[in-house]
Design a protein around this nucleic acid. Structure first.
Lengths: 199, 199, 199, 199
DNA sequence: AATGAATGAGAATTCATTCAT
DNA sequence: AATGAATGAATTCTCATTCAT
């Protein structure tokens, strides 16, 4: 036996894609993109078949990459959370501490509305273990943003991270499901931010 | 031929129950109650069969009253909106203008969390005609509550009804899907309310 | 609510069919008959769809009666065992003790070959609880037949019931899967019966 | 161009392995061994993928050697029959004529039970052409064993080879599917052997 | 030759909806 | 009006087989 020859994938940040052939990795990404779109538009009860069609792949390929629908949903969340964490980190390192938190929230809500992502599912309720780590990561990132904003005097001292996350998810949900237009979105967030400022 | 005995179409607020025999009206109510519970617990993808079982009726009876599942979901929403409107009206007539709006919001969010009702669907996106009226009614009620609160100086003058509704639905969604515990719910709403107060 | 009106099914021996409407009971029987044929011909991996087609019913109907394929297989076995037990009882009450056991075995093997039933699966290995009772019943019946035959001096005294059942199932399997012709079947059983006689 | 190097088609008993490179021949053997195990454990509906995994090879390699699953099953049978024929030959040449037949049957049944091989499929019904030769070979071997035993006075003169094969397959099936324990197996065969002895 | 990703037909199961009783 | 059995399309998941690497 000559043994398998994994294309030694160098330093790849996406753990799940390591050890996959180039084409498989490409398809995996396509599936995730398609799934994010489809589930955002039709909710988590959309069919896996439709995800496959949107990705331009056969249904079997989707199930080969994600053996159950739950796995697929979980992978989307993990991906989404990872992206948000990156944004948090970016803002934390080069943003103005006084506004970085608000920028992050605005940005995320806008994205939720625009890309109709499944952020509504990105919370701790019903999340399986595989996603839990990613959630914790985001928590910590927000915690950092918040404490900086508080030190800068931009946010009241008694606000806690879980409240910020609650407001964030609520706003995303609202923007997503109730179809807020940009103006309404802006005005609504203005009120929320006012609530977060020191009196 | 004796024919059915419509109990005179007097002034019956529940439009859909006019012209039904007493037992049929009772069944209709039972179905709605069961459906609200079931869909709350398992989401809108729960089966109609289960609704029938919970109501102690045969599946055929459910479909006799609500020809499609959509009709059933629509009826629940209408019911829910009607109940909310009633609460608004009650608060408008005998509540303290300065606090009635906040009370209403708190109350509604708490209910959403506790009863896990389908309030998430109670927005204008994707609402069929039959529910539109009920939504408008709630809008108007909130408008009244808001303007009173503003006149009493409890809420900033530049807040608009659609922002309040946006915050309400967002909070309900958050409470519902992210599983806020009572404490988190309270603290989060406190921030929102602070944002609504005059500076 | 008027409540369901089960057609008070009198004295019905088939426990599982009690409380079913006449048409449902008829269909249940049709499904079992079709399933017995199909699984006998193609083995247990034959599709439920084919069973439905053979029964002239929609696939949903089959799954309504037997929620899983396992349930269907289990029901067939139970049925088959019940039928065998009846034959044993009949032979025990009016047959000649000296020959009843051999008659039963011959008869059963012949039937297995002719009707291609799934008798091969009628053993204790991998049998779920629902069938266990039926198996026990058959055991007891054979035990009775055997002890009578021994008392009549037709069968050696040291033969045990489990050996008889083993020979029976083996012969059925052989007849079924190896396609014994009537002559071969007869000659083979003659040898087995000789082995069971006192020396 | 150098081309493949067929290791001269000398006198190789395993027809199918002629003309294969050494590593390919090794893989073929590995696949057969894995397949025998897997199909024994899970029945013929086990997946080819699992066979590949057990063999430590890629699925493509399995299909390269055996273009269809049927081919794989057929090859296993042929292998098994060949092994049985060898045992028959060995017993015929150095065993006691009076007991060789019984030894062979006992041995084979025990193996069937222990290794849960696919012997159940080793009969004439549904056997494809590729296996037919091997079956014929076994027939002849048994015929030899039987006539010797008859000449030695250990088996009744009127027993015919097809009866012996029928009893053998039946016993294997029984042992395999009904899960006979060693004790039951022994007692059951004792009866069968008694039936084969001269009275 | 070997690999393993992709394919897509097929299988089990669910469920909204219809209709005979 | 109510019942609940039947329907069949849709869905999730499996697996034999093909084929680009």
């Amino acid at each position: 036996m000559t043994g398998p020859k994994p294309p030694e994938g160098g330093a790849n940040p996406q753990g799940a894609t390591r050890g996959l052939r180039a084409d498989a990795r490409r398809n995996r990404a396509r599936i995730l993109a398609a799934a994010e779109e489809v589930f955002a538009e039709k909710g988590p009860s959309a069919s896996t078949e439709e995800v496959a069609a949107r990705a331009g792949l056969a249904i079997g390929t989707v199930f080969k990459h994600f053996p159950t629908k739950q796995d697929l949903l979980g992978a989307i969340m993990k991906d989404l959370l990872a992206r948000l964490s990156e944004e948090v980190d970016a803002l934390a390192s080069d943003g103005d501490p006084a506004t970085a938190l608000f920028t992050f929230v605005s940005q995320t809500v806008e994205q939720a509305a625009r890309k109709k992502t499944v952020i509504g599912l990105l919370t701790e309720s019903g999340v399986d273990v595989r996603v839990a780590d990613a959630v914790r990561l985001l928590h910590e990132g927000i915690e950092g943003l918040l404490s900086r904003a508080q030190q800068a005097g931009a946010v009241r001292g008694d606000a806690r991270p879980d409240e910020v996350l609650a407001l964030l998810t609520a706003a995303c949900q609202g923007a997503l499901h109730a179809g807020w237009d940009p103006d309404l979105q802006h005005r609504t967030l203005a009120i929320v931010f006012d609530g977060l400022r020191p009196r």
